[in-house]
């Protein structure tokens, strides 16, 4: 029989259930020699049926063992060799199952350790990815914000004026009347004296209107200023911390006529 034919014959199942004749036993054993990969399946079924029998075990009378001892002739000279073999065989079976159990245990433990390690690594990577994502998202928002600011600067209608202090440029003012927007890009503004701040002013109809205090200005910053429709000039003065209600003309740093 081919392996497939042997499997489909059901002989192996009949063998493990003890239903085969002596001739069929020989056929099964020959085929197990030919196809040794079927042996583990046989061992599993044998183990299961033994367990089934154990779970359905019933105890005979307690004196049966004594009656059996009387019935058996232990003086038979062949018996020693026979039982030595039996002892070895049970040992072999025990060893076989212990090996199976140990192998299973080893693989299961290694598998658990491996999956736990993988899980930990993936969790770490996942946390890192979340952090990276948040960081990239923040950077993207900043870039979009800068882009929006600079897109206004690039508009054709935007008026570009240089802010100078004694012929030295301190920054550039961008004014767009259509968009009603004013920005100031700081380029070369020195730090204010201690306990002082720079304050922006607009001359509107002859009156100086505060446009705000330049809080810790850095060269390169693009600062949005309030749009003043009728402003005729812009001015920067040095004022006490917190700013002033009216400009200190003596501390005028820079001025520009619009």
């Amino acid at each position: 029989m081919t392996k497939e034919e042997f499997i489909n014959s059901g002989l192996l199942e009949e063998f493990v259930l003890g239903l085969t004749s002596e001739h069929q036993d020989k056929v099964v054993l020959e085929h197990l020699d030919m196809y040794p990969d079927l042996c583990p399946q046989l061992k599993k079924w044998e183990f299961s049926l033994e367990e089934l029998a154990r779970k359905n075990a019933i105890a005979p009378s307690s004196d049966l063992k004594n009656r059996l001892q009387q019935k058996l002739d232990f003086h038979d000279t062949n018996s020693a060799a026979i039982l030595k073999k039996a002892n070895n065989t049970s040992l072999i079976n025990r060893k076989f199952w212990m090996n199976i159990a140990a192998t299973y245990l080893l693989f299961a433990t290694l598998g658990l350790i491996y999956f736990a390690y993988q899980n930990r690594q993936l969790s770490k990577q996942s946390e890192q990815l979340v952090m990276e994502n948040a960081k990239l998202s923040a950077e993207k928002n900043d870039l979009e914000s800068v882009n929006r600011k600079f897109s206004f600067v690039r508009e054709v209608e935007t008026q570009v004026l240089q802010f100078s202090d004694k012929n030295k440029p301190v920054g550039t003012v961008f004014i767009n009347h259509s968009l009603q927007k004013t920005s100031f890009k700081i380029s070369n503004l020195a730090s204010p004296p201690a306990q002082k701040v720079f304050q922006m002013w607009a001359d509107v109809d002859g009156e100086m209107v505060s446009l705000g205090v330049l809080d810790a200005p850095q060269n390169g910053d693009l600062i949005d200023l309030p749009y003043m429709k009728n402003a005729t000039s812009l001015n920067i003065t040095i004022e006490p911390l917190g700013g002033s209600k009216t400009p200190t003309v003596a501390n005028l740093v820079a001025t520009i006529v619009i």
Partner: peptide
């Protein structure tokens, strides 16, 4: 007891 010498442990378990 009488037939243990016919039993082949490599082929089937003792319980079978």
């Amino acid at each position: 007891w009488q037939n243990l010498d016919h039993y082949q442990s490599s082929k089937a378990s003792i319980f079978t």
